Structures are given as C-alpha cells and as structure tokens.
Amino acid sequence: MNTNLESAFTIKELSTFDEMAANFELIRLLNPKMSREYYESLLPAMIGNHYKQVAVYNDQGAPVGVSGFWINTKLYSGKYIEMDNVIVAAAFRSKGIGKILCRWMERKAKQESCKCIMLDAYVSNKDAHRFYYREGFSIIGFHIQKDL
C-alpha cells in the first residue's frame, strides 16, 4: 500500500546493470571520488552476489533517491536485508524520500521473511544518524575495517 507521499513518486526495484549504471550521478553524491568507470566495474560482481537497487523517480522520470540492497544471512541476525548507499538528491532531502526508501525496505524484508534491516552509516554523517534513529534503527556494534 502506498502512502500519499509515495503516490507522488514512482518506485522501482532495479536488478540489471543498465538500470543501476544509470544511477551513477546519485551514487556519486555519497562517493564523490568514485569514477563512473570504477562504479560500473564493481556492478557485475555485486549483481553476481544478488545486489539490487531500489530507486525513487520524480514525475519527470528522474531518479531522486536510491538505495542498494542485499539479502543474506548471518549467525547473529538470521536472514536480513542490508541497505547500501542510501542517497537522496540534494533538492529532495527532507521531503520524505528517505522515508519512502525505508518503508520500501521494510515491505521487502517482510516479503523475504527477513528478521531485520541493517546498514552502515559513516561515523561523520550525523544527519544520517538522526534520520535512522527516527526511523527506528539503533546502533548495535561497530563496523570495523582494515585497509590492505
């Protein structure tokens, strides 16, 4: 069921290289140093690992929000959906697009019998932290990485 806000936009699940490659300009908002060539070089392996995206389009068909996602299973969480690179175009921030993406993920997670939704948010992205807290997320640990 779409809310009034959702009915003002088109929401589409994306599964092909071409559909996802078309979202590069949005992806670059969160990853400004990433080149189109690098993004497109990563997509085949990601798609091979069941990566998909969901995009929100305005009434002119332009993408205004996107989130990648994976469905997988971990010992500590069971089956989960992971939101990846949740991005909203600057002109559409604070207009409910992030909420649309979160609601879509909740519905998808329930359809897939997932036990939770998880995501990583950069430590420095305080606005994202506030948003996710309002959406019912909580911090349960640290994502720890060692560059090689």
Rank of each mutant, 00 (worst) to 15 (best):
K115F: 09
D120C: 13
A62I: 07
V88H: 03
M46D: 03
I27V: 08
I87R: 04
I27E: 05
K52N: 14
N58D: 13
L148E: 05
R103H: 15
P32A: 04
A45Y: 02
N49A: 13
Y38V: 07
I87G: 02
K146I: 07
E106T: 14
K95V: 11
D120H: 13
K33I: 05
A128S: 02
A55R: 04
S138L: 14
N72V: 05
S94F: 01
S35L: 07
I87L: 11
N23Y: 03
S7K: 06
V86D: 00
Y132C: 00
A91H: 12
M105R: 05
P32H: 05
K95H: 07
A8Q: 08
M46K: 08
E135T: 10
F17Q: 14
S7D: 06
I71G: 06
L5A: 09
N49R: 10
H143I: 09
R103C: 14
V64A: 09
C116G: 09
L148A: 08
E82D: 11
G78C: 11
E6G: 08
P32Y: 01
Q111V: 05
I100H: 01
N85C: 04
K95W: 04
M83F: 09
L26V: 12
V66W: 02
S35E: 06
N4G: 04
C114I: 08
A22M: 15
R130N: 02
Y122M: 03
S138F: 08
A91T: 12
M83W: 01
N85R: 00
K110L: 08
K95F: 05
E82R: 04
N23F: 11
L148G: 07
S67D: 10
S124M: 02
P63I: 15
L43S: 13
S113A: 15
G96A: 03
W70A: 03
Q111P: 02
V56C: 02
Y80N: 10
A91F: 07
K126Q: 06
A62T: 02
Y39K: 08
A128M: 02
D18Q: 07
N23L: 15
A91E: 05
M105T: 15
M46S: 02
G98C: 01
M118A: 05
Y132N: 00
I27A: 05
G96P: 10
I140S: 13
S67R: 01
A90M: 07
K74D: 06
K146L: 08
W104I: 06
I71D: 03
T3H: 09
I11P: 09
H50A: 15
D147N: 12
R130A: 10
A89R: 14
A121V: 05
L5R: 08
N58S: 04
D127G: 00
G48A: 06
G78P: 10
Y80H: 09
L26Y: 14
N85H: 01
G141D: 15
R28E: 08
R134Q: 12
